[in-house]
C-alpha cells in the first residue's frame, strides 16, 4: 500500500457562480486513492462529494462551475493541464464513472448492445464484431443471465438493478484503472443494492480494480470500503481506515453521522438527526464549518479552520480536540 497513489488530489477548489455569489462547493480537498483500494467518500447532500468526482473527471459545467485551484494527478499526470481532447481519452479508459440513477444514465433510443459496442470501439482498437463479443462477455461477468437478450433490449425494458449491472459492465469493458461510482445504489431497493455492492467487491478482486465510491450511506461504506473520507460543507473532516472510523470516530460530525444511522436493535432512539444547518457555502464562517452544530466547540474553533491532525494510524481529522474524544 506504500506505492505511488493512482489518483492524488491536492487542495482542490471548485466554485459555482450563482446570482453573483461565489459558492465554494469544494474548498481545499486533498486525498489519495491508492492502487487496488476502495476509497469511500461519505457526506450529506451538498457536502461536495459529487462535485469532487466531477472535478476529477473534468466535467464541471462552465458556466456556472469551475475548478479554480489545486492539482489532480492521475497516474503521475496533471489532469488539470490536459486539453478537452486529451481528457476524452482519460474519461472512460482511464477513469470510468457509474452514476446514481441507472434508468436515466443510458441513451433511451438505442439498444443496450449498440451502446456498449459503440463505447468499447471508441476506446479500444476493436472491430464491431469483437467489441460486440466483448460487450457480451462483460455482461456475462456481471452475472446477467441472458446477455444476448439484454443486448437487443432497450434501456426501458430492463429493471434498475439490471441496468446498473449493464452500466458497470459497459464501464469495465473499457478497462479503466479507476472506477468512480457516484451513489450507484442509492436509487435501487435494498436487496438489489446488496447484489450490486457484492458485484463491485467481486469485480474489484477480479480485475484488481481501484474504486472511488461515493455515498451518503455509512452502511454501504462499512460493507465495501477499505478507507473512508468524510466530507462536510465542501471540506474533508476525517480520513480514516474504515474500521477505525466506525470504532473510534474522531470528528464530532462523524460521530453524529454514525449516531444518526437508524439501528434495528435499538428501536427506541432511532431517527436521530443533527441539529442545525450546513453553513451557506457562499458565506462561510472563518472558523470550523461545523462550529454551529458542534457540542464540543471551543472558543478557538471560531477563529480559524482547524488543520487535519493525525489521530491514529493512517487516520486524520479536522478538529482541535481529536484526542479528547473517545468513542
Amino acid at each position: 500500500m506504500s506505492s505511488q497513489p493512482l489518483l492524488s488530489v491536492r487542495d482542490l477548489q471548485t466554485q459555482f457562480v450563482s446570482d453573483g455569489r461565489v459558492i465554494k462547493a469544494v474548498d481545499g480537498v486533498s486525498f489519495d486513492v491508492r492502487p487496488g483500494e476502495i476509497l469511500g467518500i461519505v457526506g450529506e447532500s451538498g457536502s461536495g462529494k459529487s462535485v469532487t468526482a466531477l472535478s476529477v473527471m473534468g466535467l464541471i459545467p462552465w458556466p456556472p462551475g469551475r475548478v479554480v485551484g489545486g492539482s489532480i494527478m492521475f497516474e503521475g499526470e496533471d489532469l488539470r493541464a490536459k486539453t478537452q481532447a486529451q481528457m476524452r481519452r482519460v474519461r472512460g479508459a482511464g477513469i470510468a464513472m457509474v452514476f446514481q440513477e441507472p434508468r436515466t444514465a443510458m441513451n433511451p433510443v438505442f439498444r443496450i448492445g449498440e451502446q456498449m459496442t459503440e463505447v468499447i470501439m471508441l476506446h479500444r482498437k476493436m472491430s464491431r464484431a469483437e467489441a460486440s463479443g466483448e460487450a457480451r462477455s462483460m455482461l456475462d461477468r456481471v452475472h446477467i443471465a441472458e446477455p444476448g437478450r439484454v443486448m437487443s433490449a432497450y434501456p426501458f425494458e430492463l429493471s434498475g438493478g439490471m441496468l446498473q449491472r449493464v452500466m458497470i459492465a459497459m464501464e469495465l469493458a473499457l478497462r479503466p484503472r479507476l472506477l468512480i461510482a457516484d451513489e450507484p445504489t442509492t436509487a435501487l431497493d435494498v436487496t438489489i443494492q446488496a447484489q450490486i455492492l457484492r458485484l463491485i467487491r467481486e469485480l474489484h478482486d477480479e480485475f484488481d480494480l481501484t474504486v472511488l465510491f461515493i455515498t451518503h450511506d455509512l452502511g454501504v461504506i462499512a460493507q465495501l470500503c477499505d478507507r473512508v473520507m468524510v466530507m462536510y460543507a465542501g471540506a474533508v473532516v476525517e480520513l480514516s481506515p474504515v474500521d477505525a472510523l466506525f470504532h473510534s470516530p474522531a470528528h464530532p460530525y462523524t460521530r453524529k453521522l454514525l449516531a444518526a444511522v437508524p439501528s434495528v436493535v435499538d428501536t427506541r432512539n432511532t431517527l436521530r438527526s443533527i441539529a442545525g444547518d450546513v453553513p451557506d457555502l457562499a458565506d462561510l464562517p472563518p472558523g470550523c464549518r461545523f462550529y454551529d452544530r458542534c457540542d464540543l466547540r471551543q472558543p478557538e474553533c471560531r477563529l480559524a479552520i482547524p488543520d487535519l491532525r493525525k489521530v491514529g494510524e493512517d487516520h486524520t481529522a479536522r478538529c482541535v480536540l481529536p484526542n479528547a474524544i473517545s468513542p
Binding site: M57, G92, A96, E101, A105, P108, F110, L122, M167, E171
Partner: peptide
C-alpha cells in the same frame, strides 16, 4: 444524466450531438 454519462465515457462533442441529442 445519460448525456453526462456519455461525457464521462469520453464521447466527443460530435458523437454526443449525433448519437445522444439528435436521436
Amino acid at each position: 444524466e445519460f448525456v453526462e454519462a456519455a461525457h464521462a465515457s469520453g464521447e466527443s462533442t460530435f458523437n454526443i450531438i449525433s448519437l445522444y441529442l439528435l436521436p
